[in-house]
C-alpha cells in the first residue's frame, strides 16, 4: 500500500465510512482464541518472547538454582542449601558493599537529577549558542565509559595527575583522590553524576517542553517570583517525568558495573565496591561461583520486588 492509499483510507474514514463499524479493532469481534488477528499478533511477538525466555528469564532462574549449589563455571556442583547465602550475609564486605551501593545510588539519582534539571531549566530559555551547549553537555553520556574512566584516571589517579597538582597549588596539600577511601567514594559518585546528568537533562528537557508557556506568562503577570514559579508550577507540572526519571536512574545506578570497576576496581580496601562489582569479583576473580551468584541473585530478588511495586505505582499515577 502506498502513502496515497493511507491518505485515501483516512479520507474515507473521515467521511464517515469508518463510523459504520467496519473499522473496529478485530478483537471486538466474537472471541476466538485463534482468530487471524491473534495468530498474527502472536507471530509478531513470538521471536522476542523466545529471546527473552532464553537470554533473560532462563539465566535468572538458573542463577537461582546455582546459588544453592557449590558448583563453579564448569560443573554444576552439589546442593548445599543456603550455605552460600550464609557465607555472603555473614561477610562484612557484603554489608559494606550494600551500604555503598545505597549511597552511590542516592547520590547518582538526586545529584544527576538536580544538575540535569538545572541545566534543562537554563537551556529552555533563549540563550546565545544554546544548541551548541546542548550538544556539548550530552557528551559525557554518549562517550563510552571506558573512554571517560580512562580520562578521569589520567586526571586524578596519581600524585602527578593534573587535579592533585592543582589541589596542591591551591594549598590543599597532597590530595590522593583514589587512595583515600572517603575521597575515592566521593570521586566515584561525582564521576557517576557526570556520566548521568545528560540523561536527566534530556528527560527533564522533554518534560519542560511539554509545559504550556502561557501558564508561566500568566503567573508572572500575577507577580510570582522565580523561586515560587519553580516550587509551585515547574516541579508539580513535571512531577511525573521526575518520578519516572528517578526510577530509571535508580535501576541504572544499582546495576552499574563499569563506572566503579574501571575507575577504582572497588578499592581502596573495598571502599567503593558496589554489589554488582562484588558479585563480578567473587565469581570471575576469586572463582567462588556459589557466593558470587548468591549476591547477584539476592540483588535480583530485591529488584524484582521493587520494580513490580514501582511499575504498579506508576500505572496508578497514570490513571489518576
Amino acid at each position: 500500500m502506498s502513502t496515497d492509499s493511507v491518505a485515501q483510507s483516512l479520507r474515507r474514514a473521515r467521511s464517515g465510512v469508518g463510523v459504520a463499524g467496519a473499522g473496529r479493532p478485530p478483537d471486538a469481534r466474537p472471541k476466538r482464541v485463534l482468530s487471524p488477528r491473534n495468530v498474527t499478533m502472536l507471530a509478531l511477538v513470538l521471536p522476542s518472547i523466545l529471546l527473552v525466555l532464553l537470554l533473560n528469564a532462563y539465566p535468572v532462574l538458573y542463577a537461582g538454582v546455582q546459588s544453592v549449589r557449590d558448583g563453579d563455571l564448569i560443573s554444576a556442583g552439589d546442593f548445599v542449601g543456603l550455605a552460600n547465602y550464609a557465607t555472603v550475609l555473614s561477610d562484612p564486605v557484603f554489608w559494606q558493599a550494600a551500604r555503598f551501593t545505597l549511597v552511590f545510588t542516592l547520590v547518582g539519582v538526586f545529584g544527576s537529577w538536580a544538575m540535569g534539571m538545572g541545566l534543562a531549566l537554563l537551556l529552555r530559555r533563549r540563550i546565545p549558542a544554546g544548541g551548541v551547549f546542548k550538544v556539548l553537555l550530552l557528551l559525557p553520556w554518549v562517550v563510552p565509559v571506558v573512554v571517560s574512566a580512562t580520562s578521569w584516571n589520567w586526571l586524578v589517579a596519581t600524585p602527578q595527575s593534573p587535579l592533585p597538582i592543582l589541589a596542591e597549588a591551591l594549598g590543599f596539600g597532597r590530595v590522593l583522590f583514589l587512595a583515600n577511601p572517603l575521597l575515592a567514594q566521593i570521586t566515584v559518585c561525582v564521576f557517576k553524576v557526570w556520566i548521568s546528568f545528560p540523561f536527566m537533562m534530556m528527560m527533564m528537557g522533554a518534560a519542560l517542553a511539554a509545559v504550556d508557556n502561557n501558564v508561566y506568562e500568566a503567573a508572572r503577570v500575577d507577580g510570582a517570583s522565580g523561586a515560587q514559579l519553580l516550587r509551585t508550577m515547574t516541579l508539580p507540572l513535571t512531577a511525573k517525568s521526575t518520578f519516572i526519571s528517578w526510577i530509571l536512574m535508580t535501576i541504572f545506578c544499582v546495576n552499574d558495573f563499569p563506572t566503579v570497576f574501571l575507575l577504582t576496581g572497588g578499592g581502596p580496601v573495598n571502599a567503593t565496591q558496589t554489589l554488582v562489582v562484588q558479585a563480578y569479583r567473587t565469581v570471575f576473580l576469586d572463582f567462588e561461583t556459589g557466593p558470587g551468584v548468591a549476591i547477584a541473585f539476592l540483588m535480583t530478588v530485591v529488584l524484582v520486588v521493587i520494580s513490580v511495586v514501582l511499575y504498579r505505582s506508576v500505572k496508578k499515577v497514570d490513571i489518576e
Binding site: 528469564a57 538458573y62 542463577a63 546455582q66 554489589l275 547477584a296 540483588m299
Partner: peptide, 24 residues
C-alpha cells in the same frame, strides 16, 4: 503481563544473567 515482565527484566543486573550464560 509481558509488559510487566519486560520492565522487571530491564531492572535486573546484567551480571546475574552473565554467569549462567557463561556456563551455557
Amino acid at each position: 503481563g509481558y509488559s510487566l515482565l519486560l520492565f522487571v527484566i530491564q531492572s535486573l543486573p546484567i551480571v546475574t544473567a552473565v554467569i549462567p550464560l557463561f556456563i551455557l
